[in-house]
Amino acid sequence: MAGVSGCIKYSMFIFNFLFWLCGILILAIAIWIRVSKDDHEIISSGDSGTNSYVAVNILIAVGAIIMILGFLGCCGAMKESRCMLLLFFIGLLLILLLQVAAGILGAAFKSESDRILNETLYENVKLLSATDDNGKAFQKVLAEFQEEFKCCGLVSGAADWGNNFQQNYKSCECSKVPDSSCTSYDGKYVYKQPCISFIKDLVAKHIIIVIGIAFGLAVVEILGLVFSMVLYCQIGNK
């Protein structure tokens, strides 16, 4: 009977160690995107606010599961445990199938997601002219965003601020020498560009990061399926 190939066995161990490190990296990146305040509070506030980070939340769960599977694969390879290797194979296959399903659903509902994002942003304009605590909290977040990205207002420019403009113009005020990117509004020189385009760009950047991780992970997962099944069969033929 053929024995277990030492090359396959240790390749499987090294692969799963790297797989475990990938899980840590995915978890770290997903958490970084999740806690980023650049656009999260702006697109999740308001009456029609929606959770735009479902994909990121899924990645957090996937990263944690991959760490567990990587550990399971390492132990299965070193102990030559068919049970551990089978569990590793099944778990990895389920993750791969879920990724494919999530990708198909994401592509199918892309236009719907864009529509919901637009509706949320336009709905949140009301918060800029509000005077309640919810409105003030949102105004503080947008003021910080305006200062960082050199924009003013949410969708229509400085006019979005309504009666609150004079109290918040500082965050979108142009330099002492205004240029073509500035405009005059209510006696102040402010940035002409509304923040909606910058917010959409940030959301798109986060989506690209998620897609890139998913594709790279799919390649690693397929290799893991092959390695684990080869080692599983070799152990069975001992």
Rank of each mutant, 00 (worst) to 15 (best):
E119F: 12
N134S: 11
V219E: 00
A159W: 03
T131R: 14
M12S: 13
I222V: 15
I42W: 01
Q167A: 13
I8S: 08
I209W: 09
E123F: 08
S113M: 11
S171E: 01
F165L: 04
F227I: 10
A61I: 13
G46C: 05
L93W: 13
M78P: 01
I199T: 06
S171D: 06
V62K: 01
K188Q: 14
F15I: 03
K238P: 01
F145W: 00
E41T: 02
P194V: 05
L154H: 01
I222K: 02
C22R: 00
I104C: 06
M12Q: 05
Q139E: 09
K200G: 02
A143D: 04
V226M: 11
K150E: 08
S181L: 09
S129I: 04
I66W: 01
V203A: 06
M67K: 02
A64H: 01
Y191T: 07
F138A: 00
A2T: 12
P194C: 08
D114Y: 07
K238E: 15
D114E: 14
L105G: 03
E41H: 07
C74T: 05
C172K: 00
R115T: 09
C233F: 11
V220Q: 00
I66F: 02
L69M: 07
I33K: 06
K140E: 11
Y53T: 03
C75M: 08
S45A: 13
N163F: 12
M67G: 10
L94C: 14
V190Q: 02
I207H: 07
K79H: 11
K170R: 12
N164A: 07
L92T: 15
E123A: 15
S113F: 11
Q139R: 06
A218Y: 00
D132Q: 06
S11A: 14
Q99P: 03
L127M: 11
V219I: 13
V141P: 00
L59P: 02
G187C: 12
A158R: 09
C22A: 15
M229H: 10
G153V: 03
L72A: 04
D132F: 07
V35E: 05
W32D: 13
A204H: 14
A30N: 10
F71N: 02
N134R: 13
S156A: 12
L117Q: 02
K188D: 02
R82C: 10
N168G: 04
L128M: 13
N16F: 07
G23W: 00
I104Y: 05
Y185I: 06
Y191H: 14
I222Q: 05
C195E: 03
F138T: 03
A55K: 08
I222W: 02
Q99C: 11
G49E: 02
Y122N: 15
L127I: 07
L128H: 06
S5F: 08
A77S: 15
T131D: 12
I211P: 02
F13P: 00
L94T: 15
I207T: 10
K170A: 13
F215M: 10
D133R: 12
G76I: 03
T131A: 07
D39L: 07
A101S: 13
G6C: 08
N163W: 09
F138M: 05
A158G: 04
G6T: 08
Y122M: 11
S171Y: 08
E173C: 14
V56K: 00
F88K: 01
D179C: 04
E119S: 14
K188C: 10
A30W: 09
I235R: 12
A55N: 11
A30E: 07
L127Q: 09
N124I: 04
M67D: 06
